[in-house]
Design a protein around this nucleic acid. Structure first.
Lengths: 252, 252
DNA sequence: TATACTTAGTGTGGAAAATACACTATATAC
DNA sequence: GTATATAGTGTATTTTCCACACTAAGTATA
């Protein structure tokens, strides 16, 4: 068909269901975790799955993801990014379900989570110790999310979104190391982060054995921006980018 | 809800329609073009739109995109990549329609297109001279695709997918220049492309005024691979998929 | 045959960026 | 004081990038 309306009237078209599934990352004890919920019924009863649900007819996709996130964690105003849409016909044995996958990063100190630590049906799992297999194609989705997170860390400052409001530079470095699974040079890290000019000094410190730790926060005006901040040259599977480029004419 | 099945039975859930829209790029006269179809009925009658259509219940998303592509162009076996899913509730005035956008790159010599040059309702447009506005949110989708294409060229060898089976190195360089809108150094280009080791020499040449042009092909075993191949370090202005909300924070 | 023309490269020096690692500085606990 | 931890700075080396000059080769045509 040449265009949607030529052959089908969308009002009568046989329709798949559409869900959003959210891979929610956070740091706990400096280790990267993600949230899973245990399914209580068929299909995949007893398996762990990503939190998600059907989109409502009036809400847009981002809002649906935000809603699911909030229902599960009680957290609002976090970093949220659409990842990819998974639509294998048999991914859900009940009926055709297409899932728009999102990734959310929530701060370590934002744990007014509804997820109680004792809850057996909703839990944080370290990404290195995920139950396997997960329900549906959620193994694939989490793998994709992890890959996207890693590759984005290489050229953006996304790691801030996982740290508490205030943090030390070594904590930030540690976060990068955790997620990239790679050691970084302390001196070079300081230089790069300073040069990137994304940190704002606070007058807070944290005292302990040695010299008190100086605490910083992410510069508010850059809180929702992403920009190049490459730690290393490397493969990245996916680097998505912007809307709106007005091409200018180029003569030869 | 904690999981999809808790509250809703997907079999009875009120469902949006799901379409795929495909941004089909090709080179014509060394200039980047994309394919648009003119709508013949409400909504957006007379406006140009991306080719696309409803997904069928049995086919997966990639196949749906491939099908639309083939219906429109008669071309199979091309580079195809899922871009992003657009789902604003009002993007289609008829009903809720969620569109999974794809990008396709087709070779310049693959033009057994069903698109006849004279056809008035299906046409190739140079990306610098797109009609405006397009139907639905297709301006946004094309801008996104163009941006993704440009940023991918900076670190992959995707440009091969737009060239004929065999091509000269200067043609390849010209393709990069066209799409990135930037002049590249000939010597450095030779070095980089050789070093990347993705070209296979053919014994073909093309004769003309001067020394015959040596023709190459993309190494078959890498034809479907992507890997790092950075031409320049650059930012990409992400105003993108990332829907981060800046946590509003009161200063003391 | 010569020379003009075109593609096809190579050589090279300087600039910029990445990297490794040694070094200094500061504030605290004990 | 000394030990210890964070918080940096200095610097030499390597690596990559980049601009640009230069050489090479095969064909057409004057």
């Amino acid at each position: 068909m040449r265009e949607p309306s030529t052959t089908y009237d969308p009002a009568q078209y046989e329709r798949p269901s559409v869900t959003v599934d959210v891979v929610i990352f956070t740091l706990r004890n400096r280790e990267l975790h993600l949230l899973l919920v245990k399914r209580s019924r068929w299909p995949f009863e007893g398996f762990w799955a990503l939190p998600g649900g059907f989109i409502e007819m009036h809400e847009n996709l981002d809002d649906a993801a935000r809603r699911e996130l909030e229902e599960e964690t009680g957290v609002r105003d976090v970093y949220l990014e659409q990842l990819y849409t998974f639509g294998e016909p048999k991914r859900d044995p009940r009926t055709r379900v297409i899932s728009v996958a999102y990734m959310a990063l929530i701060r370590a100190d934002a744990h007014q989570l509804r997820v109680s630590e004792e809850s057996t049906d909703v839990r944080w799992f370290p990404v290195r110790e995920l139950p396997h297999p997960l329900a549906f194609d959620h193994d694939q989705i989490t793998a994709y999310a992890l890959s996207r997170l890693r590759s984005k860390l290489e050229y953006t400052t996304l790691a801030f979104q996982l740290l508490p409001e205030v943090f030390s530079i070594l904590e930030l470095k540690d976060t990068y190391e955790q997620i990239l699974d790679e050691q970084l040079d302390k001196g070079n890290f300081y230089r790069k982060i300073k040069e990137a000019d994304v940190l704002e000094e606070t007058n807070l410190t944290r005292e302990g054995r040695g010299r008190p730790t100086r605490l910083w926060r992410f510069k508010p005006e850059r809180g929702d921006k992403q920009f190049v901040f490459r730690w290393r040259e490397d493969r990245n599977d996916d680097r998505d980018s912007a809307t709106a480029v007005t091409p200018t004419r180029k003569e030869d």
